[in-house]
Nucleic acid binder design. Structure first.
Lengths: 348, 348
DNA sequence: TCTAGCACTCCCGCCCGGCGAGTGCCAACC
DNA sequence: GGTTGGCACTCGCCGGGCGGGAGTGCTAGA
């Protein structure tokens, strides 16, 4: 809500920004003297006190107890984040370091996994990456390979270069011609379709021929369905979960346990990371978070994609007292790099 | 060291066993009165005190402070574990629950992942499973599938039903005949070989023909090499990492952080789980653990395999104050189930 | 409208004493 | 001689009281 940003006169604004900054750095409640020691605000401590008192009643700050310094509330952080107009620049070293990680081409899985580690190391928080969603990829090619032991490997290629494969049991009595026939007709029909939008309706539209073929097609569709099911099988990669414990802000073990428990439930993380749309970095602060377990931390996410399509997302989980500027730029930069890689794949 | 077990007279033995049991249950140092309250040892508290004092000097017990009850030392736990001759029986419900999990056939990855979850839930500790090691599987069949975009999918089937696949870039100017030719000769040469033992020597033994073929074969070998590299790419699956935090024994955050950090380094966990040989469950207690980070906990592991071969291992990480009996039977039972599944696959 | 001064509040760390669990020892007992 | 009851002693834990210090809110004056 950038409009909120307008509501504060310049001095309050400056004081609030300085205070949030100090608090993020130190983790200690910030008093009027401490604030002046680090920032030249051109006024006396008493004035600061008056202003912080007002910021308090406005809901931007709060006091741990009556005679302590001030600490930002969620609203205070929100103001701070909204006021960070241009993203903090990444250090050259850091940017280069990240870029290099994406230089050597890898398969999708390693890429994503590496991203998780990279982001967690760059931020010292916990990174979550939602792996490319097959549901949003476009069908390109299906190959059927007979394996030993009456099994069949189906290999699905998509336009973003992802390759999905399943082993399925082969219905009995199918000849090699059946296989090539089925694969030819499936390829014709499915080319260009978005995987998430395949429905069993297609099965009927195929005049399959023998019941054996029909049952094969049906099995394949089941497998395709699983591959393309929205939200279902999307893999999530985590990095730096141990970092959670290094945060002095998470002194409360119960909170940490809930957090780790949340991260373990893959479908929850996956659902969470499904939210970001293409566009700028998104930030959820404290209670703004959709999940109970996360309401004592902050979340920074950005989508990555291939071309125009959103394919997944990168997220960072940290304390509300997070280095927002830095984290936002890392997340933004990394998701950009990922997008580049996938988009390049697509053109091949 | 079961010989240690012989060194104690029956009464000391009984007292030690009872005390370890009580401590595992309560987590509180056990005093002479508390011990008698739960176990009918037929002697007075004073006698217990004399005995525990001796057990203390023998190194089986220790005191948190002078006027507290006794707590088992690593040696005490070791004695206890060695004395658990026959594994605690699993509850019927639990055994059935585990068995059912292995009823419906799944692909290897899901199977292992599910095992990790299963074990962590059954024990309430943290489970680690080392996924089947391709290096130890036997080559069965290699298929080459041309993909869109000048890429090639190689599909490797093994005797234990595992299917490994890699996408590789296709050297230019190869015809379909080249592909079938290369795949035929590779299949002939490699059938029955153990993947971990493939060496580049084989490449030379093939009179490949064109340089294109030669370079293809070389690329394939690289990929096979990666698949079969000992210890390198072995995947580790974790379950219940959040459970670590639920253990009151891990009050010290630093210890927990080290532990989580260790679990994040996949190669370490993989190396750790490579230790167990086929055979009974293995237990490492406290300082017996090979890794510094684990020396404040205990580890229970068992190998699983296919036929005679060891393919991987299941492990549980918990506090030294662990419910050894129960954990050992779960680990043993689960690794048995896994072995059954893989062995069955092998016969297909 | 800002500032200087001041009384007040509340956290934190500290010490202290009482309580209770549990031990170690000793003398008596079988 | 091994076992037992008795008893003094040790030590961690808990609650209360106390001083120091950081920081505030208020008020009066510039």
């Amino acid at each position: 809500m950038p409009e909120t940003a307008q509501r504060l006169d310049p001095r309050k604004r400056a004081i609030l920004m300085a205070l949030v900054e100090d608090y993020i750095r130190t983790g200690e409640p910030v008093g009027s003297l401490a604030l002046l020691a680090r920032h030249d605000l051109g006024v006396s401590p008493a004035t600061i006190r008056n202003e912080t008192a007002e910021l308090d009643t406005l809901g931007y700050l709060q006091q741990p107890h009556t005679s302590a310094g001030r600490v930002p509330s969620s609203r205070g952080y929100r103001f701070y984040v909204d006021s960070l107009t241009h993203p903090e620049d990444l250090e050259d070293v850091e940017a280069r370091w990240i870029r290099e990680a994406y230089d050597s081409p890898r398969d999708a899985e390693t890429l994503i996994q590496q991203t998780a580690r990279l982001v967690s190391e760059a931020t010292s928080y916990t990174a979550m990456v939602l792996g490319p969603r097959y549901a949003r990829a476009v069908f390109r090619d299906l190959k059927l390979v007979r394996l030993p032991g009456d099994r069949l490997l189906m290999v699905l290629s998509t336009d973003v270069g992802l390759v999905e494969h399943r082993v399925i049991d082969l219905p009995e009595g199918l000849t090699d011609e059946d296989l090539t026939g089925v694969s030819r007709s499936l390829n014709e029909i499915l080319r260009g379709m978005i995987l998430g939008k395949l429905t069993r309706g297609f099965v009927r539209s195929l005049n399959a021929g023998s019941t054996g073929r029909r049952s094969l097609i049906s099995t394949i569709f089941d497998a395709l369905g699983r591959a393309g099911q929205a939200d279902a099988e999307d893999k999530v990669y985590l990095g730096g979960t141990a970092n959670i414990l290094s945060q002095p802000d998470f002194g409360d073990l119960d909170v940490v346990r809930d957090l780790l428990g949340f991260l373990e439930r893959e479908h929850l993380v996956s659902a969470l990371l499904s939210e970001p749309q293409a566009g700028p970095v998104q930030v959820y602060i404290g209670e703004e978070n959709p999940y109970q377990e996360l309401q004592s931390c902050s979340l920074v996410m950005a989508a990555y994609g291939a071309g125009e399509r959103v394919m997944g997302a990168v997220g960072v989980l940290g304390p509300t007292r997070m280095r927002y500027g830095h984290v936002m730029s890392v997340v933004s930069y990394v998701s950009g790099q990922l997008t580049d890689v996938l988009t390049r794949q697509m053109r091949r």
